[in-house]
Amino acid sequence: MFIPEKDKGKTPILEVKNLGIDFGGLTAVDNFNLTLGRTEIGGLIGPNGAGKTTIFNMLTKVYEPTRGEIFFDGKSTKGMSTVDINKAGMARTFQNIRLFDKLTVEENIKVALHHTTNYSLIDGMLHTPKYRHEEFRIRKEAMKYLKIFGMTKTAEYRAGSLPYGAQRRLEIMRALATKPKLLLLDEPAAGMNPSETSELMDTIREIRDRFQIAVFLIEHDMSLVMGICEGIVVLNYGRVIAKGWPEDIQSNPKVIEAYLGKSRGKMEEEEEKEKADIEKALRKGRLESAASGKPDRKEGE
């Protein structure tokens, strides 16, 4: 995308070149290119089934891309697993929320702090002083994240029993707690009402400013995308149809067509053309059947 002024001169956090994936004979995504600045908020939009989540899955190596290359923080991610990707500094949320339902909110964040928690299995089984010290530390850290999102009061509730909006927030918190350099959000505002969405926008901006990370998000809520994204990619049928600043995207005819269908004049024009084609074909068919001497009815049977 267009790297913002502040990120110029630094290696982009994410660089994707000619990315593509086939499922059997079907090309789900093709020729996808992207550059994301170190503290940029990027948006990925497109109609249902356009391949947005597939791109996220390729970035996090849930799927191995068929073509193309991904450079994360200047390094190729070829051959890395989902676990390696996270350790390298990319964290994500999911379209259909995936929390650890039976663990508490606090524990969900503590799990994400796993790699910064420093004690062995023996310490864990015997609850040694080292265990106590580390647990105390990560508890404080987990509370810090909860405070940013205003969810301290939910700490000891089971994640699976929280209301929807809180679950979405928790998922973002959990991703953040792995200390990523790039945060991928898959429809973070899905199912939220307008006031919740506007809170979320503030939160995402605050996350970026506070942790100095890049955010790349998929979203259907245009107010959110246009409100916080600094660059937008539009995808349709697995291909990029537009790329640019929010204002450019809003007025791009291809984007409007992908979302709303064709304009009325254009549709009528095409309909008439189609009608003419059908009539032509019918006339041709009648002529042919008359020539071969077969009755018309038989064709229908």
């Binding site: 849930v62 989902t82 676990v83 650890f100 663990l103 990560i138």
Partner: peptide, 28 residues
Amino acid sequence: LNLKNSKQGRAIMSIRDNRIAGESIGLD
């Protein structure tokens, strides 16, 4: 019980609850 309430136990339980999410936060 100690294991259940430790970082290893939490990792084990989170993989039980959601394997894909577990991988996404870097759990082997």
